[in-house]
Computed example of a mutant assay.
Amino acid sequence: MPHVEQHRGHIIAREKLPDDYPTNAHSAQFWEELGRTVAVFGFLEEMLGKAIFALTGMKEFDPDADPDALSEWIKTLEKTLTDQLGGLLFAYKKALAENDKTKGQDYEGLIDNLMNAKDIRNVLCHGSWGKPDDQGKTLPKFVNRKLAVFETLVDIDFLRATRKAVVGLACDVLDTVTSLGFQFPGSESPGQVIWPKQMNPPQGGE
C-alpha cells in the first residue's frame, strides 16, 4: 500500500475569536438598522394576517346552505397564524381575488411589490454577512431556490430605504381593507366593524 501521510487534526481556538464574532466587522449602527428592517417585515406579516381576516370575514354566508363555510374560514385564519411571508402573500392574493367587494380593482402592482419585498426579506434574514468595504457596503451571500445569486451591495442607506418601502407596503395593505369602508382589525380606524367585540371569537374544532 502507498504511504499515506498522516495530518494532525485541529480545533478552533474559541478564546481567540474577536468579541461579537462573526458580527464584529460591521458597526453597531449597521446591525441596528438591519434589526429594525427585519422587524418591519414582521409588522408587514402581521398586517397581512389581519387583512386576510378582514377580507375573508366580509363575505356573507348562509350557515344552513353552507354548513362548512365557518369551519373553512377558521382553518384559513389558523393558517395565517403560522404562515410566513410567502404563504401569507398567497392567501392575501386569494382573499382579494375572491372578495366580491374587490372585484374589478387592480392589485397586480401591489402583489408584485409585495413579492419583491419577500425576496429582499429572505436575503436580509438568511444571508451571510461578510466584511464591509471601505464605504460600509456588503454583498450578503444568498442564493434563492431558483439558484439566482443576490448581487446588490447593502449598506445603512439601503436598509433605511427598504424599511421605508416596506412601511409603505404595509399601509397599502391596510388601504385594501379601509378603502372598502371597513375598520382595519385591531385598530381604531373608522369604518364598519367586521367582528364586533361583544361577539365571541371564532373557535376552531377540537
Rank of each mutant, 00 (worst) to 15 (best):
M1C: 06
V4W: 08
V4D: 07
V4G: 02
H7W: 04
R8Y: 03
H10E: 05
R14Y: 11
L17N: 10
L17Q: 10
D19S: 13
D19V: 10
D20R: 15
N24T: 01
A25E: 14
A25C: 07
H26I: 02
S27A: 12
S27T: 15
E32T: 06
T37G: 10
T37A: 08
T37C: 15
T37R: 12
V38S: 12
V40P: 04
F41H: 00
F43Q: 01
L44G: 01
E46I: 01
M47G: 00
L48T: 13
G49M: 09
A51H: 08
A54K: 05
L55Q: 09
L55F: 12
T56D: 07
G57A: 13
G57V: 03
M58T: 04
M58L: 12
K59F: 00
P63Q: 10
P67V: 04
D68S: 09
A69E: 14
A69C: 08
L70A: 15
S71T: 12
I74L: 07
K75L: 12
T76Y: 05
E78M: 02
E78F: 01
K79L: 07
K79S: 13
T80I: 10
L81P: 01
T82Q: 00
T82M: 05
D83H: 03
Q84D: 02
G86F: 02
G86H: 02
G86S: 13
G86A: 14
F90D: 09
A91W: 06
A95E: 07
L96I: 14
A97W: 08
E98T: 00
E98S: 15
E98G: 06
D100E: 13
K101P: 03
K101R: 12
K101Q: 15
K103N: 07
G104Q: 09
Q105P: 00
D106M: 03
G109L: 14
I111A: 08
L114F: 05
L114V: 02
M115S: 11
N116R: 14
I120G: 02
I120S: 07
R121N: 06
R121W: 12
N122M: 06
L124K: 13
L124G: 13
C125G: 11
H126V: 10
G127D: 08
W129Q: 11
W129F: 15
W129K: 09
G130N: 07
G130Y: 00
K131S: 12
K131L: 08
P132F: 07
D134I: 12
Q135H: 13
G136I: 02
K137V: 04
L139Q: 13
P140C: 08
K146N: 09
F150Y: 14
V154H: 07
D155G: 15
D155Y: 06
I156D: 14
D157F: 03
F158R: 11
F158V: 10
F158N: 08
L159S: 11
R160Q: 14
A161G: 10
R163S: 14
A165C: 05
V167H: 15
V167I: 15
G168Y: 09
A170R: 11
C171W: 11
L174I: 10
D175C: 03
V177E: 10
V177P: 03
V177C: 03
T178V: 00
S179Y: 04
F182I: 00
F184C: 05
F184W: 08
G186V: 02
S187W: 04
S187A: 05
S189E: 11
Q192T: 11
I194C: 06
M199N: 13
P201R: 10
P201M: 05
Q203G: 05
Q203W: 06
G205P: 03
G205W: 06
E206R: 02
E206D: 11
E206H: 09
